[in-house]
Each structure stands twice: as C-alpha cells, then as structure tokens.
C-alpha cells in the first residue's frame, strides 16, 4: 500500500467467531437487526463427575453470517456473553457470487480457507 495509515486493529472489517466459546445461546441471532446470522445446535446430556444429575448443554452445529446483509453495527459482538464474536480489521473477502458472502464456521473461525 502506498499510504502510511495502518488499519486499526479494532476496525469494523469482519466479525470472527471462536466456536469453542459459543454456547449457542442465540442472543446474537435474535438481536441482529438485519437477520443476517443463523445458528443451529443440538442438545446433549453430560454428566460431570460428582454431579447429582446430568446437565444439558447445547452443541454448536452450524453458524453463518451473511456479510452481504450485515450492517456491521456490532450488536452481536456487544451482546455475546462469552466474547465468542469479535471484530477483526479484515477487508479482503469480496465474493464473485452472492452466496460467497455467507460465511460459515470454518471461515469465521479462520480454521478453513480464508477465501
């Protein structure tokens, strides 16, 4: 780049997901004004050693953000109780078709192909 301005680390460029931190609570999905987040989960029963009875936890199956629809308002980042969503300054994810802007867990978490 020909300019000296660094893009701030807190720039609202992209919303990244840490799947391990997500409890599938649905708060982000329900607060999103653009209805651009989807989340699928299933419940499993786990028994902690020493616990009196098994507890039910939600397991994240699918999570998508449609960046074609997203208005980058950050409400999802704000409401997440476990900081599973965070801003990143990434900007280079233009897509040649509309569906390419719908990003799933592997892209959002950086574990898969970035493009």
């Amino acid at each position: 780049m020909s300019h000296n301005d660094e893009i701030p680390a807190a720039a609202h460029g992209y919303i990244a997901l840490t799947p391990a931190a997500c409890t599938s609570c649905m708060l982000c999905v329900r607060e999103c004004p653009s209805w651009c987040i989807t989340l699928e989960s299933h419940a499993v029963q786990t028994s902690e050693p020493g616990a009196r009875r098994p507890t039910t936890v939600s397991v994240l199956d699918a999570f998508t953000i449609d960046f074609g629809l997203c208005m980058f308002c950050g409400i999802c980042v704000e409401v997440c109780p476990f900081d599973a969503l965070e801003w990143t300054p990434r900007f280079d994810y233009a897509a040649s078709d509309r569906s390419g802007l719908v990003q799933a867990i592997d892209q959002l978490s950086g574990s898969g192909d970035q493009r």
């Binding site: 893009i7 460029g13 390419g100």
Partner: peptide, 25 residues
C-alpha cells in the same frame, strides 16, 4: 454483478481488493 464487496461501508482498501479480484477474474 461480477464482484460483491462486503461492508457497511467497506474500507477504501476493500474497494482496491474488490477491483483486484474483479480484474483477475
């Protein structure tokens, strides 16, 4: 449409990245 650049708004750098993607295609 040949290329969709996400953002609200996209950064100026995203415009350049989109133009590069478009011309490469």
């Amino acid at each position: 449409v040949s290329v969709y650049v996400p953002g609200c708004p996209p950064r100026p750098e995203a415009l350049v990245a989109g133009l590069l993607a478009l011309t490469a295609e």
